[in-house]
Design a protein around this nucleic acid. Structure first.
Lengths: 239, 239
DNA sequence: CGACATATTGATCGACTTCAAGTGTAGTGG
DNA sequence: CCACTACACTTGAAGTCGATCAATATGTCG
């Protein structure tokens, strides 16, 4: 049930059978959410942390005057609000971008897990640190790259993250965002996102239809994106 | 010696005398660094985490084609690379922006501290989570605010963060960045930073001379910045 | 003083925004 | 089976914010 989480954690460090079963046992019943649902509210104080089992979700930071910025994209295996264990209230909200299956673990249980299995506790910490590394790369892309490069960078990242949890087929991966949502990720207008997507399409770098993206020319995409995957930390870590 | 760190941690949660003395005892000899020194290299694998005692430092993410983005500003009391305890190698470098006094704590010692004092361990985790919350707010400002608002937002943030560790006098705070460095924070050209600064100056919102900024009209600055300080988490947390 | 980083100003250019309208396409109910 | 709605996507035209290029102060520190 929580296979994609275990896949990701195992990428960082092998789990003992004990750690794995104690962790897997900690989650509640799966629940469904429709696309566009707010699953964690800005300003709230969660008592559980939510894990994505299926579908895409996003962290949304709203500015007082109405600006809307997506600060993280979440895929199966991702905790959307693990930080709410220690950091409250929520500084942003979390919404689904597609129909999702979710499950949750009580904060009390997370604390018990971390106490019983210190290395598992550090793995959870690591999980939030990787979120931070991705935030930093997004900042660099947002601040210093033009639209096409920024978009290409996002696609490279999504491809590798989805691949790590086994959700890609060949060069194809699910990408159920509307262009408006994509604009909120990239900090652009949806009009310009549309034109930028068309640019990548007409250059035969990617094809995007029906919520799926196929990468037609990975080399070129990486070059446009100035992409270096190190910051994703998809490998063993010294936890 | 590590007073500003203790001030910050205490803001989040009272420390027991034991926790406080064990923590304070953990740091090595202070060392000096000149402005512009690289104190942690991109790609390196630190065995200690570095704390700023005096001065300003910045995390710098470089893009392959030469883009340069500052993804965090660090002031006294801040760990510049606490995440390197679990996340290696470094995904960015850290440079000083002014002459600094630094000290460091070995990672081995941090692990021992976290084991002996679980709550202190969670406080360290919390510290990295607040870094993440600031990253998210920077993403929103970068993606959805115009230059003047973005700059104003940064100044509000810096004022409150410095105030929390006792480094402000009235409405004045140290800000030893060059306009080029500021441009790398805001994702702008230094020319445009210059014009934006002049805009805030001629509107009598702030005055900036000799590495110090005085806020002349806090209300207006907050309004320009659409600033809400919640995300800084300068208060008690459930660690 | 010379040298070099930093700040400032002007002029031009271009990437992206905004506004507005039009084109699918899927769902809903008559 | 056809209106009607809703939403995502697309296209065009005009405007603006910020980049770039280039030149001129203004320190400031050996």
């Amino acid at each position: 049930m929580v296979n994609s989480l275990l896949a990701k954690l195992t990428l960082w460090s092998e789990l003992t059978p004990d750690e794995e079963s104690d962790l897997a046992r900690s989650f509640g019943e799966p629940r469904r959410a429709a696309a566009g649902d707010e699953i964690v509210a800005h300003g709230s104080t969660p008592t559980v942390s939510t894990l994505v089992l299926e579908g895409f979700a996003a962290r949304v930071t709203l500015l007082p005057e109405g600006g809307r910025q997506i600060t993280a994209l979440h895929i199966p295996g991702d905790f959307v609000d693990l930080h709410s264990l220690l950091l409250t209230p929520m500084d942003h909200s979390v919404v689904t971008l597609s129909p999702c299956t979710l499950t949750a673990v009580p904060h009390r249980r997370l604390r018990a897990l971390a106490e019983a299995h210190p290395r598992l506790g550090r793995l959870l910490w690591l999980n939030t640190l990787v979120d931070g590394a991705i935030h930093r790369q997004w900042l660099a892309a947002m601040g210093r790259m033009a639209a096409a490069g920024h978009l290409a960078h996002l696609l490279c990242e999504q491809f590798l993250r989805l691949q790590a949890v086994g959700l890609t087929r060949d060069q194809t991966f699910p990408f159920p965002l509307t262009q408006v949502a994509l604009a909120d990720v990239l900090g652009l207008s949806s009009v310009h996102v549309n034109r930028t997507v068309q640019e990548l399409r007409s250059d035969k770098v990617v094809s995007w239809t029906g919520g799926e993206i196929e990468i037609l020319d990975w080399e070129r995409l990486v070059r446009i994106a100035e992409f270096d995957p190190t910051y994703l930390y998809l490998r063993k870590m010294p936890v």
